[in-house]
């Protein structure tokens, strides 16, 4: 690490907060909601409804771990990630980073917070400005935060490119000259420039070739070990998550339905939605694969503008009972570290 640009981290954030089971909580999300208004009108528009993209999500991310956030497309997982980073302002709820509330931060203090939390994007073709050279892209966070001299920045960029496995010789190149995997590495170098401790990875591999996916995942893991990073890893399929994540949260229609440690979730899924998702994952063992029974969910995901009364999942649930149509299930810890929101489990 270059001494000039790495900054002491303790001063910028408040005191270390709660511990659970001896692990430090890095990010704590409580009852987070993000509604997008729908507008309509002839001349002047007014709000007529709202898309409830994230509707009361709570979880903790422990320091140094990888938390997977899984769900179908449109379930609000990307919105959750962006709202945590304050790229979208939450409708309500709280996000605490090292015990400090960040949803009310503005201006300079928000900018300082951004050095701690970064994001990796899904589409490597859209996430790099086509009019900027690789050097400028990677150096942008340093320029924005006015860190180091020009020469120090150049050194840091070279170091970052090397860190993500790219030749520093490419700083003058432009994004269109690189492949998808290489672009994803450039994006990774950019998000590491400020030495963040928390990274939201929004489906960073789903747009890549299968052969390259493994490389990027390995790179992410290596960087986590070397730099002590904490990841919130957003994905839509469960197979890659198992390999990478310590714990996994499953989202459905703006709500978390189940959180557990990775192995626990895969071996003992409790929520019918998780069970259905897992039944779709092929198993490498032919004998097991033979016996695998797919749970096919009926119907479509309901509209997030008008979610069903009671449990969100009741329209498609194979085991729903009357209470599911009346009251909304709470997220309850049924086994140590295993939380489920389902009336049938309790």
């Amino acid at each position: 690490m270059s001494q000039a640009v790495s900054e002491p981290r303790t001063s910028s954030v408040g005191a270390t907060a709660a511990y659970a089971d001896g692990k430090e909580v890095l990010v704590e999300v409580t009852d987070l909601k993000k509604y997008f208004p729908i507008k309509s009108g002839i001349l002047f528009q007014r709000e007529v409804a709202a898309v409830k993209a994230v509707d009361g999500v709570s979880f903790k991310v422990y320091k140094g771990e990888t938390l997977g956030l899984v769900g179908e497309s449109g379930c609000g997982k990307s919105t959750t990630g962006r709202t945590i980073l304050q790229l979208y302002r939450p409708t309500s709820g709280s996000v605490k980073y090292r015990g400090q509330e960040i949803t009310n931060l503005k201006g300079e203090s928000l900018r300082r917070m951004r050095r701690e939390m970064q994001m990796i994007f899904q589409d490597p073709y859209a996430s790099l400005n086509p009019r900027m050279s690789v050097g400028r892209i990677v150096a942008e966070p340093l320029v924005v935060h006015n860190i180091g001299t020009k020469k120090e920045r150049e050194e840091r960029v070279a170091e970052l490119l090397e860190m993500v496995g790219l030749n520093p010789y490419f700083v003058r190149r432009y994004p269109h000259e690189f492949s998808g995997g290489q672009r994803q590495r450039i994006g990774l170098a950019r998000s590491l420039a400020l030495n963040p401790s928390f990274i939201v990875a929004d489906e960073p591999i789903s747009a890549l070739d299968v052969s390259i996916q493994a490389q990027v995942v390995n790179l992410l893991q290596r960087l986590q070990e070397e730099l002590g990073l904490t990841y919130l890893f957003i994905a839509h399929d469960l197979s890659m998550v198992r390999h990478l994540c310590d714990r996994v949260a499953v989202m459905y229609l703006g709500k978390i339905v189940e959180i557990a440690e990775s192995e626990e979730l895969y071996t003992n899924p409790l929520h019918p939605y998780t069970q259905a998702l897992l039944s779709a994952v092929p198993v490498p063992d032919p004998a097991v694969e033979e016996k695998r029974q797919r749970i096919i969910l009926k119907g479509d995901v309901p509209s997030p503008i008008n979610p069903p009364k009671g449990c969100n999942f009741n329209t498609r649930c194979p085991v729903s009972i009357d209470v599911c149509f009346e009251t909304e299930p709470e997220l309850v810890e049924v086994l140590p570290g295993h939380w489920v929101a389902c009336h049938r489990v309790i």
């Binding site: 962006r82 928000l110 050095r115 998000s191």
Partner: peptide, 8 residues
């Protein structure tokens, strides 16, 4: 969005 995320 990336630029915004770094605080531009």
């Amino acid at each position: 969005e990336a630029a915004r995320a770094v605080g531009a």
